[in-house]
Structures are given as C-alpha cells and as structure tokens.
Design a protein around this nucleic acid. Structure first.
Lengths: 117, 117
DNA sequence: CCTGAATATTGACTGAAGTCAATAAGAAGA
DNA sequence: TCTTCTTATTGACTTCAGTCAATATTCAGG
C-alpha cells in the first residue's frame, strides 16, 4: 500500500482537519505514518534526502547505525513499499532516493488551507 | 513526550530532508508520527477537527467506532501526550480539541522550502 | 450523602513489529 | 566458473501496542 494509492491524496482535496476520514482513508494514511514512526527509518530517510546527489547505498547507510545490514534492508523495504523512497540497482549496489512528491503530499494533508486541486 | 518538546521544532529550522536527523531528534519525531500511525486515532483526530465548535466528548466520539469506551480513552490519551490534542473537563464530560500548531509544525517539517525562523 | 452519568485505570490477552544470525540470491571481475 | 562484494530472505525471538472486561474515579443533581 503506497502513498500513491491513497484515495484522498489522488483528489488532493482533503486536509486532515476539514473532513472526517473514512475507515478506508484512515487505514491507508495510518499505513504511511507507520512507515515514518520508527527512529531508524526516519534517520534513513533524512540521511538519504540530505546526501549530496540525493542517493545512498545500503552499506553506506548501514554504516551510520548500530543495527545489522538485514535490518537496514528491512527498513528500506518498508519505506519503499509506502512510496516514500525509490530504489535503483546499479552494478552490485542498490541506491535509494526519496520521492519528493511523497513528502509534499503529506504536508498538504496536514497544512490547513493548502488544498489546491 | 509532546510535539512541543521536539528540539528541532523549537528552532523551526530543519525540514526533514535538508539535514540528517540526530538519534535524539529521530526518537522524538518517531514518537509523534507513531501517535498518528493508527486508524482509530487518525479518525478521532479528524472527527474532532471537523466538528462544528472544534470539540467533542469521549462518548460522542466513541459512537463512531466499534471499539469500547476505554479504548477510545486510551487513544485520546496517546494523542494528548503527543501534543496533538488538548482536553478540557466541563461538567461531567471531557471535551477534546486539536492543537492547530501541532499540525502546522509537522507540515513545516515535511515541506521543503518552508523553513522560516 | 447517594445515585447516576461520563471518563479513566488496571490487568490480561493477542497480534504486530523490530531485531538478529544464518543463509540465499544477484552481479562483477579474474 | 569461482570468488567476492552487496543486498535480500528466512525463521526465531522479544518487546510493544491495541483491545477488552472489570473496576475505579470524578462530577452533578436531588
């Protein structure tokens, strides 16, 4: 379930506070927030985003953490499946980059008065 | 741990994608996102926010869900302790309202290029 | 005070999620 | 193809989080 598939985001109309969320919408949104609700994933995300070039390999990223490489792979998968990052294989490494639309969509959802079509 | 105590939000300077989060910052932020990472809490939040008058009692809210009243109380507590809502007792009921600053702060964090002091 | 109404707390259960060690899979180079 | 480097998957363990039933707390009215 990726952020792209959120029905309320496709219409880009409903900030969180202007209309009650349906159960479906809430479940989809919760899934995205859950992806951001882990310290390691948040640091991964901001590490990737603030890299010169905007991308980083798994081992590059793993070097910044105390957890093992499989754990980093797991967290990247969660971010990827939520539509927050993209990954591209080049040679033997896999480079991840953030999807700028993702953050913008979330921000629009939170920000009252930003609901443009 | 409330959203007000986030060090990076007090300075209001760092969008998520411009600088790597420290472990401390990431832990604090994750705590806030975790509060939004549940379908019931998301619906509670948007229900309260979209109410005429901007507030609702626990029983009012509970009527919209399949879960029990203690569960609603629990979720409201989580939202309150994350700084996303405020609660005020009036008579025998307790009315919750959203804290508008909370959403705005989060949105600023996500939105690139919105970092004003 | 006693009763009734609204909300909170406690304790227990259950399923989800983060982590690791071990191993597999994919790609590049000799 | 064999080896090495990088990443992914599997299975097990453990902690955390959502939920409920039962009970406690707080307040208003009579």
């Amino acid at each position: 379930m990726s952020i792209n598939e959120l029905p309320l985001l496709e219409g880009a109309r409903v900030p969180l506070a202007s209309d009650p969320l349906t159960e479906i919408e809430a479940a989809a949104l919760a899934h995205v927030f859950k992806a951001l609700a882990d310290p390691v994933r948040l640091r991964l995300f901001s590490l990737i985003a603030s890299r010169a070039g905007g991308e980083a390999s798994v081992l590059d990223l793993a070097a910044h953490f105390d957890v093992t490489q499989p754990t980093i792979s797991h967290h990247l998968k969660v971010l990827r499946e939520s539509g927050l990052i993209d990954s591209e294989r080049r040679g033997t490494s896999i480079y991840s980059r953030v999807r700028p639309q993702a953050l913008a969509q979330l921000a629009m959802l939170l920000m009252p008065g930003e609901a443009a079509s």
